[in-house]
Design a protein around this nucleic acid. Structure first.
Length: 819
DNA sequence: AGCACGCCGACT
DNA sequence: GTCGGCGTGCTC
């Protein structure tokens, strides 16, 4: 018997514990297209459900017991061999399914939907029709003209989605089913809601009895807003989408899809910029990087460049050099919205050779960019985390800017870090990885210190700018002096001073909302989210209490829900409250607030910054987004309202994060010709992290931190693996975590000399989120093959055992934040 | 996550 | 005898 072609396929939708390659026979008519990297549709499982998959490899052999490929979607494979290899590595590293890893290599939104269509079975026995009910006869009549999907059928029959009549008839052999694959258009749009009736009629409904309380509340918001996105309406009226859907069904509202995406950087295409002359320091940095690139072997470098040192110019010169060889480049930035200036500069320098990849593009645009990269029409990719998978031809260089940013680590499966992916691709391709930051992650700086990365320092500010003068204010003394507000006397004085001079100020308060803590002064009851173990935050913009974890909201209360007392105390200050206090303190100041509540629609972020840049405002107050990457020469004062809050958490990275945030925001001050000041408010002025960031002294910070990490055994001196458990049943998750822990311990003891320390199992720092209870185990280990195999085997074991079917387990190697 | 297979009770 | 309950195990 001759050998037949067999494709080995990674199938979508399989759980981790039975994820492997499945072999499928390739029918002769598909033989040409069935190549590794092509997407396919295969029958899977006992029900032969049509499932998507990707061919990982092909072989020839005896495939008599195999099922057949249903169809091949791409006539040229979408995923190259290099990226297939990467996907296999990601599965091993992050404990995801192979298909989930492969999906990273495809542009988002390149979807495909498999739908079932029903048609009349022409071989239906002639007497069968007479036995049907009236409804069933009507259904067959509908199908006599053309085949329909279940949804279309039930809709035309006026039945609800729960009916299984089509399936039942198919089972009895009266109907045939056929699977259809069609491309999906999950075009990224914002759903806008507007009135479908006259405003007068709508107002009438508000006082009538036809609508429920929630529907009235949502309708009122729409009337007032004229038109708003569904998301905004939900925020302001405190309802969920279902209420809006109900109003749509009643014909009161209508929804319109508004395409919000565009590429705002294209406009700059015409304004090409000539490369500026590098400063001596920049040139020296370039001279250090060049030989690393030119040896065309895997290499890694850390550019440690203080804010304002002009790293970007060094990148661009290096990119120019790489292009001479006809090689490709990937530049990663933490968040496109935060770096519009940098992206514009890349466009200005390299024009149409740039492709931009980020979530703000429409599906069509993203596909176009992806196609241009694959064909080699664009050889320089600028993008966020997922751009590290771009199908760049002959990759020569990957740059990761602000490499310490947490956005480079995926928080959902596959839980990869872009830096690890970059390192893998560079190692395989013999290319150079450059990570850069003013406040590098401790891991990267350590890698440079021990020589795994080449260290390139850029520690001179470009131009004349000098470091700001930092004033630390002790908020304990401030309180003792009778000031319990968010703004100290000193900061107030400085703000007034700045306004007099016509200069601008930025204030950082890393907490959204108005009051962050509401409790009863009689019984001590704290208002908490019913779904999460998190206290509710009062938002003045909509007068509601909101949960920042799950989006739950309820109306503000004046009486305690526990004891009925009317002595509720609203305390804890967020950005909304600080904005109001400032307005009272400095009535003549023009204040702008920026946080996720004011930037919920795309690009409003840019609009806010533009407004501020044009100097229509004196003070910009906001959460950490005011600290990142922006360059306003007229800002000469930065205020940190509470430097402590990110410092005292139980995360071992708290110091690192705080140092980075404080250093960045302080660095916003005095970027132009004017000398800057920074006021840092803290109740622990002696804390060394606050001192180091006030001095903008990374080396001192690193020196102290690396000693701690070594003494307490934390990364980079070990790897940390978090194993998380969640379930809606509190008891289940407790048992599961304990059982897993016991098995883990047992397995570790079996192996000689496995250096592992286990911590836990313990409740997650936020115990309940979205109605699910969470536990965790932390392993200090070495991320090697045997440890990964151990974890993988246990995940499989517990997945199979069915005992904890309603609970979920995940493993996260080196998480940036521990749950 | 589905879906079939299989082993036990209630009912025709 | 047979229908259907859901525990168990498999998915090319």
């Amino acid at each position: 018997m001759s050998a037949v072609k067999i494709s080995l396929v990674a199938v979508e939708g399989v759980s981790y514990h039975f994820d492997r390659l499945y072999g499928y026979l390739v029918p002769t008519e598909l033989e040409e297209d069935a190549q590794p990297g092509a997407r396919v549709v295969v029958p899977f499982g006992a029900g032969n459900k049509s499932s998507r998959g990707v061919i990982v490899s092909v072989e020839y052999g005896n495939g008599s017991s195999l099922k057949q490929l249903q169809s091949v979607i791409d006539d040229t494979p979408l995923i190259t061999g290099e990226l297939i290899e990467l996907a296999i590595w990601i599965k091993a590293q992050t404990f995801c399914t192979l298909y989930d890893a492969l999906r990273l290599m495809l542009p988002a939104g390149l979807g495909l939907q498999v739908t079932k269509q029903y048609s009349i079975n022409p071989l239906m026995p002639p007497d069968a029709f007479g036995l049907l009910t009236a409804d069933e006869k009507r259904l067959c009549e509908l199908l006599s003209k053309k085949s329909l999907t279940k949804e279309q059928l039930l809709d035309r029959m006026g039945l609800n989605g729960g009916s299984d009549m089509p399936e039942a008839l198919a089972q009895r052999g009266l109907l045939l089913t056929e699977d259809f694959t069609k491309a999906t258009y999950n075009e990224a749009t914002a759903s806008m809601a507007r009135l479908n009736i006259s405003e007068d009629m709508a107002r009438g409904l508000l006082s009538g009895v036809e609508l429920t309380k929630k529907q009235k509340s949502a309708l009122k918001t729409v009337i007032e807003a004229d038109s708003a996105t569904v998301k905004e309406i939900c925020y302001f009226s405190g309802v969920t989408v279902s209420v809006i859907n109900a109003l749509v069904k009643k014909g009161i509202l209508e929804l319109a899809q508004l395409r919000i995406m565009r590429n705002p950087y294209r406009d700059i295409l015409s304004a090409r910029e000539e490369p500026p002359q590098l400063s001596d320091t920049q040139q020296a940095a370039y001279d250090n990087l060049l030989p690393l690139y030119e040896k065309h072997a895997a290499a890694a470098a850390l550019i440690f460049g203080i804010t304002g040192s002009g790293k970007t110019q060094v990148f661009m010169k290096l990119i120019e050099r790489v292009r001479v060889d006809g090689k490709g480049v990937i530049v990663l930035v933490p968040e496109i919205a935060l770096t519009p200036q940098a992206v514009s500069r890349f466009y200005a320098r390299f024009g149409g050779d740039i492709a931009v990849l980020h979530s703000g593009l429409s599906v069509g645009e993203r596909l176009d960019e992806w196609q241009r990269i694959r064909e080699g029409a664009a050889s320089i990719v600028v993008g966020t985390r997922s751009a590290v998978f771009a199908p760049v031809i002959d990759l020569g260089l990957i740059i990761i800017d602000e490499e310490q940013e947490h956005t480079y680590k995926s928080e959902s499966s596959p839980r990869y870090h872009a830096r690890d992916i970059a390192r893998f691709r560079c190692a395989k391709g013999g290319s150079l990885m450059v990570v850069a930051s003013a406040t590098p992650s401790v891991e990267s700086f350590y890698a440079a210190a021990v020589g795994r990365y080449s260290l390139v320092r850029l520690d001179e500010r470009y131009g004349e700018a000098v470091l700001p003068q930092v004033i630390t204010v002790d908020m304990k003394q401030e309180l003792a002096a009778g000031n319990d507000g968010p703004v100290s006397e000193r900061l107030k004085t400085e703000l007034i001073e700045n306004m007099k001079r016509g200069e601008q100020s930025i204030l950082l308060l890393n907490r959204r909302g108005y009051n962050t803590f509401i409790y009863c002064t009689d019984c001590g009851h704290v208002l908490a989210c019913p779904n999460c173990s998190i206290s509710l935050t009062y938002h003045s913009a909509n007068g509601r209490l909101m949960c920042h974890y799950c989006g739950y909201s309820s109306a503000g209360v004046s009486a305690c829900p526990a004891c009925g007392s009317r002595h509720m105390r609203y305390s804890g200050q967020g950005t909304q409250k600080a904005e109001q206090v400032l307005a009272e303190l400095l009535p003549q100041a023009r204040i702008l607030r920026m946080d996720t509540d004011t930037t919920s629609s795309k690009y409003s972020h840019e609009k806010i910054l533009k407004k501020f840049e044009e100097e229509k405002y004196d003070i910009l107050i906001g959460t950490q987004m005011v600290a990142k990457g922006l360059d306003f020469p007229n800002v000469t004062l930065v205020g940190v309202l509470s430097a402590d809050q990110s410092l005292y958490t139980d995360d071992f990275r708290a110091s690192e994060r705080t140092f980075s945030l404080l250093t960045q925001v302080i660095g916003r001050s005095g970027r132009g010709a004017l000398r800057g000041r920074a006021v840092v408010q803290t109740s622990t002025p002696d804390n060394e992290v606050i001192r180091f960031s006030s001095d903008q002294d990374y080396d001192a910070f690193y020196g102290a931190e690396i000693k701690l990490r070594s003494a307490l055994l934390y990364p980079p001196f070990c790897d940390l693996c978090e194993i998380g458990f969640s379930s809606a049943m509190e008891n289940d998750v407790k048992m599961l975590a304990a059982a897993f822990f016991a098995r883990l311990k047992e397995e570790i003891l079996k192996v000689k000399d496995m250096p592992i320390r286990l911590m836990g199992p313990s409740p997650a720092s936020v115990y309940k989120v979205n109605g699910r209870y969470r536990y965790r185990i932390i392993m200090k280990c070495k991320n090697d093959k045997s440890v990964r195999a151990l974890i993988s085997n246990l995940l499989t074991e517990f997945g199979k055992s069915g005992k904890f079917k309603k609970s979920a387990i995940f493993a996260d190697m080196n998480p940036l934040t521990v749950i």
